[in-house]
Design a protein around this nucleic acid. Structure first.
Lengths: 234, 234
DNA sequence: CCATTGCAGCTTCCATGGAAGCTGTTAGTC
DNA sequence: GACTAACAGCTTCCATGGAAGCTGCAATGG
């Protein structure tokens, strides 16, 4: 067995279970492209890097496979999955459907929760504006991510949050790549305000349409870009 | 270790892997209520029933936990998850959002695929009518299930199909229970026709709204029923 | 030169046993 | 009688080793 890289960060030991540690470390490594897509690892090698035996690594790989981040090739190894443009298109469809639903649900929350949520959403949107003015793309990305995460995590439907979490894990690498490609970043801000306003005012239909339009526009802007750049996988 | 029941069917051996066999057998057993919700099993007991060792059972349990069918309680055992009315509400929100998206996508398919799909959808709907006339509730349920499965499996987005598969696995037991409770089964038929017609004619907006209305009505009819019957979990 | 076969080296798959943790009960103490 | 502590019996968690399978290369036969 040959080690082809540096040891992977053991990732904070938060879950006390070795499986959780391996899961977190591997997921982090994949998200941050420590392992490039297409890389084929073996459980033994990863176990050595993480300082544990093969069993917890294998179980973590099963969880990651369930989420679509890796594929376990029987008797051959663990393959880091690549994303094709087609996958990005599918993922956007999921975002459109679920976030629209989440916005609608949010607009039906009790008034106090609605107002607090709209407040927090606006805070994230303002942060995007500041980051854009400062030319800080990374900060803009984080604030945008915060907005969308708030929307699904506070809408009251845990299954929505879970679904979004899964596709976000898959598409995180793509987002990092495309952040630099996108024109018209400012347009997002106005659409975010439309969404949070509708939530604040308790208008489910309007909130749903605003969230929907936002994601549809982003998709229609991004997909051609990806195709034109000729990214076959990422 | 005490055996509290008959052996579980080994379930067809389709995957050649013991993990797949265990996964299929356990999932089937849960869906068909061989294991009641709240039942707490141990990996050792299940392994004995399935005629294999604890490892593949444990790995199957991990997959089932990822899908929300069981919870693995550290050092205590495998708990079959129960569904509360709140979960049914969440699941219906997912169905509303995803199936509406699937209907829209289906209406955007190339004409040949659209026509073939609409044809198959109508066949399932007709089967529902026949079953209802014959008073065969089980057959009605199967045909209804076929309609909704066709809709998401043929829309072209594999992630939609996967999400629906997951929530269906969770809610299958509830569906079996509530089939007997529902009034106005015939209403479903007309709404199914609305959806398939819009798909046939290639009208995405109409298809989306038809699918959406159908699931919303079913939810608004079903949830109060469940609450009134006082089902705490199922 | 090309096709086939055999083999070496890798991998996962699965069984098994020891370690450690949780729960409920029982014995002991105030 | 009420409360605490220890323990027995259960469980999962994790390490490890043997078995079996896949791949690519080298040797062999045409």
């Amino acid at each position: 067995m040959v080690l082809r890289g540096k040891p992977v960060e053991p990732a904070g030991e938060r879950g006390a279970s070795l499986v959780d540690a391996a899961y977190g470390a591997l997921k982090h490594a994949i998200r941050e492209s420590v392992f490039a897509p297409g890389y084929q690892a073996s459980a033994g090698e990863l176990a050595l890097r993480l300082g544990m035996s093969r069993t917890p690594v294998h179980e973590a790989a099963l969880r990651l496979q369930e989420e679509g981040l890796v594929r376990i090739l029987p008797k051959r190894g663990i393959l880091i999955c690549a994303l094709a443009p087609h996958d990005i298109a599918e993922i956007y469809e999921v975002l459109i459907a679920i976030e629209a639903g989440a916005a609608e649900l949010s607009a039906r929350l009790p008034e106090a929760a609605r107002l607090a949520l709209a407040e927090d959403l606006d805070r994230a949107t303002s942060e995007m504006g500041r980051a854009l003015a400062a030319g800080d793309l990374a900060a803009w990305g984080h604030a945008d991510e915060a907005f969308h995460r708030l929307l699904v995590e506070r809408c009251g439907n845990g299954r929505f949050a879970r679904i979004i979490q899964t596709v976000n894990d898959q598409s995180h690498r793509a987002r990092m790549l495309t952040l630099r490609l996108r024109p018209r970043l400012p347009a997002s801000e106005a659409e975010h305000r439309d969404t949070s306003d509708a939530i604040r005012r308790g208008l489910p239909g309007l909130a749903r349409e605003a969230a929907r339009r936002h994601r549809i526009r982003a998709r229609d802007e991004l997909l051609p870009l990806i195709e034109s750049v000729g990214l076959r996988h990422m």
